[in-house]
Design a protein around this nucleic acid. Structure first.
Lengths: 129, 129
DNA sequence: TTAACTGCAAATCTTTTGCACAATC
DNA sequence: GATTGTGCAAAAGATTTGCAGTTAA
């Protein structure tokens, strides 16, 4: 694989952001510095970056895929109020042990998605009371 | 909500099957006994059935949604070889405890998706050696 | 120079939706 | 009879792909 300006920009953008952007959002952001960047390229490069393990894909039912540059193993909460992803730091070891204990399979990765209300929406609710 | 023949058929089909079918697969199957069944109706009814908690939606990145009628809380393995879902009976209690221990959020549901090789593909591999 | 990468547009796939008709209560 | 549900087709949204031109090695 050889160097590509676009792929580098996309990687840096995902690593920089903590809000789990979609391909569309990444493309829109980067057009400020790279006006001819196409959404097709963003999708292609994001797929490559996921394949080589530099970033992670976060899927939520009914939503466009989101992308995450955080290297530490962690999970996600999908907020039913604000429809945003929040990182969730569930201890990895006990999770890993539970997955590893599954008989008869070979697990090489796993994702936990929690559905509910995120901390900022919850704080707002409490303020309103 | 009132009775509907189609919704009933769809529910029974999902409850009967253990292979986590997609909307398309459910529609194709049911056309044997209900030839004018439309895919739009299947999607509509599946959404309703998920909403009222009779079935569950299982999402896998890059795949059409799958549907699951099993009532017992359980998780899923997405097999990278055969591209099928397999039910995974990770003990619910320890998982629930880990999720409940997340500070500052309100969790009302969660899903664990494991990626790897399912038991039948693994068995085939071992047989080939 | 040549193979990989890009932009663009069209295609594909999944899911939703508008509307006229049918079925349920 | 009022209203919910359906079939059909079109639309919408997300993602992939073909192709001709560009760029890195």
């Amino acid at each position: 694989m050889r160097y590509s300006h676009q792929r580098e920009l996309i990687l840096r953008e995902v690593l920089k952001r903590t809000d789990h952007p979609t391909a569309e959002q990444i493309c829109t952001s980067l057009r400020a510095e790279c006006p001819r960047l196409s959404l097709g390229t963003v999708y292609r490069d994001l797929n490559t970056l996921v394949e080589i393990g530099k970033i992670r894909r976060v899927s939520v039912p009914g939503e466009a895929d989101h992308f995450d540059g955080e290297q530490v193993a962690h999970q996600h909460l999908w907020c039913r109020k604000c429809h945003k992803l929040q990182s969730l730091y569930i201890p990895q070891e006990p999770l890993q042990q539970l997955v590893d204990a599954c008989p008869g399979i070979r697990a090489d990765d796993f994702a936990v998605t929690v559905f509910g209300v995120c901390s900022s929406c919850l704080a707002q609710e409490e303020k309103a009371e």
